[in-house]
Simulated scan of single mutants.
Amino acid sequence: MIALFDLDGTLTDPKTGITRSIQYALDRLGRPVPDADELTWMIGPPLIASFTKLLGSPEDAQEALRLYRERFGASGLFENEVYEGIPALLQDLRDQGVRLFVATSKPHVYARRILDHFELSRFFAGIYGSELDNRNADKRDLIRHILEQERFDPARAVMIGDREHDAIGAKANGLASIGVTWGYGSRQELLDAGVACLVDAPQDLAESILTRAATMPRPAAAP
């Protein structure tokens, strides 16, 4: 059994670092600076797409992303908090023989620093994210890349995340998905995107993953 985990809104709550870094970028651009709560819709999707939507200009979006990274890479990535119950969940899944991977739209250079900082890297067989040039920022591309690198059967894997992009990326690559409701996507968003089920607390997630594992086809025996 393989479990792919989103990072932002699933393993950690990055609201403070992400929204402050967005505000920094907008201020440097001379644009209006919304309150943090008005920017939470940007947590999860690829930032270049969100900045383009917010600013209405691909050129401004690229500069906003550069400015965002200027602050985020220095301090914003550590303005973050591990959700209660996540380390115990990951340990339980590892003990049950589930192979764990991170699949985040965040650049992997940041994802690794965050996971190392919070001592979560040890649970994962691999940490995958986008490139700084935005390759693999789309979850469909990212999961396809992971499958190419790891060569596991998508029918024996599940994607866990808090936004529709996680479910859409999973479906495009033949994976089931589980939606978690403690992040930044609504229940309806996740259901509309086709998640197999919703989970409301980290301590309930292992059961959902392991129950799904029990119904998966077993690997074919070697000839």
Rank of each mutant, 00 (worst) to 15 (best):
P87N: 05
F51R: 14
K171P: 07
L205K: 10
H117Y: 07
V180A: 08
S208M: 14
T181H: 05
R28V: 06
Q91T: 10
S21F: 02
L55S: 07
K53L: 12
P87C: 03
S177M: 00
G179D: 00
R69T: 01
Q96T: 05
E38N: 08
Q62C: 11
P87E: 05
D116H: 15
L93S: 12
T215F: 14
A74G: 09
H165Q: 13
A155R: 13
D35Q: 14
G76V: 00
F152H: 08
V195D: 09
T211D: 15
S57M: 05
D200C: 01
D166N: 04
D6L: 03
V199F: 01
D153Q: 06
V33D: 10
L4Y: 11
F152R: 08
V102C: 05
T12F: 01
G85D: 00
L26W: 05
T181D: 08
Y184N: 14
A167W: 02
N136V: 00
T181Q: 04
E164G: 15
K171D: 12
R122M: 03
S105E: 08
L39A: 07
A222H: 14
E148C: 08
L26K: 03
T52H: 09
L77K: 11
H108K: 08
L120Y: 10
D37R: 12
T10I: 04
T104A: 13
A137T: 06
L147T: 01
R28E: 15
G161F: 05
I86E: 03
G44P: 12
N134G: 03
Y110V: 04
I2R: 15
R218A: 15
P154C: 06
V158D: 04
D37W: 09
R144Q: 11
I178M: 02
D92W: 07
L67G: 09
D200I: 03
D204L: 09
A157Q: 12
S121L: 02
D138F: 06
M42Q: 09
A172D: 00
V102G: 07
I86Q: 02
I22G: 11
I2C: 13
Q188Y: 13
T52L: 06
A214P: 13
R163M: 06
A25V: 01
G9R: 01
A222T: 13
A220N: 12
R163I: 05
K139F: 01
Y110G: 08
C197A: 13
A221P: 13
A167P: 06
F72K: 06
D141A: 12
I146D: 05
N134I: 00
V180I: 00
R66Q: 14
E70F: 11
P45S: 03
Y83S: 00
Y83P: 01
A3E: 08
S75A: 08
A221D: 13
D116S: 14
S208T: 11
G174W: 02
N80L: 03
I114P: 10
